[in-house]
Nucleic acid binder design. Structure first.
Lengths: 242, 242
DNA sequence: CGATTCCTTGAGACAGCTCAATTTCGGTGG
DNA sequence: CCACCGAAATTGAGCTGTCTCAAGGAATCG
């Protein structure tokens, strides 16, 4: 929300980059990385800061290096829908479009690895690997968006909340950095309001559903933002997925 | 729903193809088209027939040449959500995935221009234009899916129905093939149930909202599947979009 | 022109929303 | 380290938009 100009950080070596193996550049060979390394710039955003607003002219595309952000859109009267999460290695922007279709907001402190849009487009033309990787990532995003459409259009409040908890549980299981292999401890990386925006419901209903899942012994709360999955099978059943 | 094997039609010249300028092959040069022409096959599907089911192994990718189809997913208990429409020139399938994530159903009689998946992938690698066009189309689809997420998650029944009518109205205005430039006559290309599946609501509520818009003088019904937009400005306002 | 599918309308139920009041959490400074 | 403060979360009560169940009417197609 501040008007601060993003700070340019000292540029990091691509070969040491934490998103080296998952980002749009992951299929590049060392020589190709060298090209990117020469022209990339870093930008940093504070938590809550807008990366850009729907309708803005955007001169760059970027990979999320660190932190997380959200894609969202808001109706006139303030109803907001989160349309996607942006985690490290995710790609922001379209090489072929100058106008942002949605709001992008830093959610934690965010670092982006940026390329001038027109320049990036030229590089993609000369480096098919990048285009292929971007296509693959975009197709994954599209599948994920459609999966979410099913949740938004057809799932009940209970199923929505259970689905989201199951997703966080799965993520913390596969990544499991902080927790020492407890396996079932799940950190909720958003407020109830942010969950509501993502699930297409109100924060009160999210809270009530979490409380109900606790009361019924499916989960246990350890503070408002940490929980333990007591009955994973039941949680999966409550999520409504096959 | 039949088990009929899709019929192979006589192969048409790419240069005469009705989707020549919009499909995934639209950026190809004559020499590149010749390669596609040699290996493409046509498949036809009857209205209501499944093109494939979620989870199916799919050996081909395809462009819709004629007719329309829908992408959808259904929960265990039968709740169905339509995730997208497939109109002529739209692309079906992923070069890099053998399993279908969603159901694809022919809605009218459908003709597909098909390529063996692995073969298509090889061609894309040698013909960057195709990959670039596919990326562009996929990014458009992703934007459209996200726009629809806003509708599913946050719009009221009234806004959903008005939005859909507005979309059909816009489409019939720009294409305007059948109607002789009446401008405001809109044909609804789906049943109330199909609209409900697309909008994430019940067919009864769709019907009630259409009746309400008629009663309030926003539209006029000429049969159940044709309507006239009496007050376009009001319709736009009711759709909730900016 | 008969049959089937599609559409409309009504009445009642209920899931999720709104408004409002506490309570708890988590970070910060004394 | 504790007390304090603002933000976040919980919970309640009542309302309302949408769904469910049901019946009748209209359109469409062989």
């Amino acid at each position: 929300m501040h008007d601060s100009i993003p700070i340019l950080e000292s540029v990091r070596k691509c070969l040491d980059c934490p998103i080296r193996h998952r980002a749009v550049c992951s299929a590049c060979e060392p020589a190709e990385l060298a090209v990117l390394e020469r022209i990339k710039t870093y930008r940093r955003y504070a938590p809550g800061e807008a990366i850009f607003w729907a309708g803005d002219e955007v001169s760059f595309v970027a990979s999320v290096v660190d932190g997380h952000a959200t894609i969202s859109k808001t109706l006139e009267d303030g109803r907001r829908q989160t349309l996607g999460l942006l985690l490290p290695s995710d790609f922001i922007g379209r090489p072929d479009r100058a106008t942002a279709p949605f709001d992008i907001t830093a959610h934690s402190a965010v670092t982006l690895c940026c390329f001038r849009r027109t320049e990036f487009r030229r590089i993609v033309e000369g480096t098919p690997r990048i285009g292929q990787r971007l296509l693959e990532m975009t197709l994954d995003e599209l599948d994920a968006a459609r999966e979410w459409m099913l949740l938004l259009g057809r799932k009940t409040a209970r199923e929505k909340v259970a689905s989201l908890i199951a997703i966080f549980a799965r993520r913390s299981k596969t990544i499991g950095r902080d927790e020492p292999a407890t396996g079932r401890l799940v950190h909720l990386p958003m407020t109830r309001e942010q969950m509501a925006d993502y699930l297409g419901m109100t924060l009160e209903t999210v809270s009530r559903q979490i409380s109900a899942l606790r009361r019924e012994g499916v989960i246990e709360l350890l503070g408002a933002r940490t929980l333990e999955v007591i009955d994973p099978r039941r949680l999966a059943a409550e999520s409504g997925d096959v």
